[in-house]
């Protein structure tokens, strides 16, 4: 009886999501190299906890997706990974975030050094109000990577699949590009400085489906060189691009307080076809959210 029920649930899920995989099967986790090892991460804005007790690992050369309903702390989470929350005056966090074994959450760690190896692409395209060339070159100049500047710019723009569209107008303002092109420029800007990890905070949420597809294609092509952590509220997107998926949800306390929590973290395939937690199942089948 219970077996019957289990079967019908998983078939419903498959029907609902239709995961289209171009993925290689993942090797067992012990064989993967860890980039981040996050333990008991709690993030607090003012007195309100945004995230409680998150523990997970992020692996090298994989795309790790973070999904969940609005307000579950997805963005807060990835902004902890490159100390972007330092800009928020009331922000505090506890727990440890080890990056290749080194704790990067301490006060003695220079956030600028962290961001040099852990790049970021934001929700809305935010190119500098400079030329297309200078958008990519600025970071390189700041970080002292000035040798072969134009080669580096070309390589980054090529990797971001933008070179052919902009090679004849590198001096034009970046703001003259379309939204999708701007976002690819932001990706080029991020990868030009040769980071180890690229964090993406809903990079396609302000883009149309074709531009979105271009960016997802990019992730497939670039993950051999970088490790990606991508926040998305689009489950199909997570299913298409991610190797690993973390599902965050909102928990409620006795007095009505709310915070974000990591519910389940596993291979994307498993999260979408055979989740172990009821809440994950509800979310990916669209019964909640």
């Amino acid at each position: 009886m219970s077996e019957m029920k289990g079967e019908s649930v998983s078939s419903t899920i498959e029907a609902a999501v239709r995961v289209e995989t171009k993925r290689q099967p993942l090797p067992p986790r012990e064989r993967l190299q860890q980039v981040f090892d996050i333990r008991d991460l709690t993030a607090i804005y003012g007195s309100k906890p945004a995230l409680k007790d998150v523990s997970m690992e992020v692996y090298k050369n994989l795309v790790t997706a973070v999904i969940g309903p609005s307000g579950c702390g997805k963005s807060t989470f990835i902004r902890c990974l490159n100390r972007m929350n330092d800009l928020v005056p009331s922000f505090r966090q506890t727990g440890t975030i080890r990056y290749h074994g080194q704790d990067i959450s301490g006060r003695d760690v220079d956030p600028v050094a962290v961001r040099r190896t852990i790049g970021m692409v934001f929700q809305r395209p935010n190119p500098f109000p400079k030329s297309i060339h200078d958008n990519v070159a600025w970071g390189l100049k700041v970080l002292g990577m000035k040798d072969n500047l134009s080669d580096r710019v070309e390589r980054a723009l090529t990797q971001a699949a933008l070179w052919d569209e902009v090679k004849d107008r590198l001096k034009a303002s970046a703001l003259s590009l379309s939204g999708g092109q701007q976002q690819r420029l932001c990706i080029a800007r991020a990868i030009a400085v040769e980071p180890d990890v690229v964090l993406m905070d809903e990079p396609a949420s302000a883009l149309d489906p074709i531009a979105t597809q271009a960016i997802e294609q990019l992730l497939h092509e670039l993950k051999g060189q970088y490790s990606f952590v991508i926040v998305t509220h689009n489950m199909q997107q997570a299913a298409r691009v991610a190797d690993m998926t973390a599902f965050f949800s909102i928990s409620r306390g006795e007095e009505g307080e709310r915070w974000g929590e990591l519910i389940e973290y596993d291979a994307t395939e498993k999260i979408f076809t055979a989740p172990s937690d009821r809440r994950t199942e509800d979310y990916v089948t669209g019964r909640f959210g």
Binding site: L87, G119, A190
Partner: peptide, 12 residues
């Protein structure tokens, strides 16, 4: 978003 963009590429 512009400040974040600058900091995001690792600029002080």
């Amino acid at each position: 978003s512009l400040r974040e963009a600058g900091l995001g590429v690792g600029a002080p």
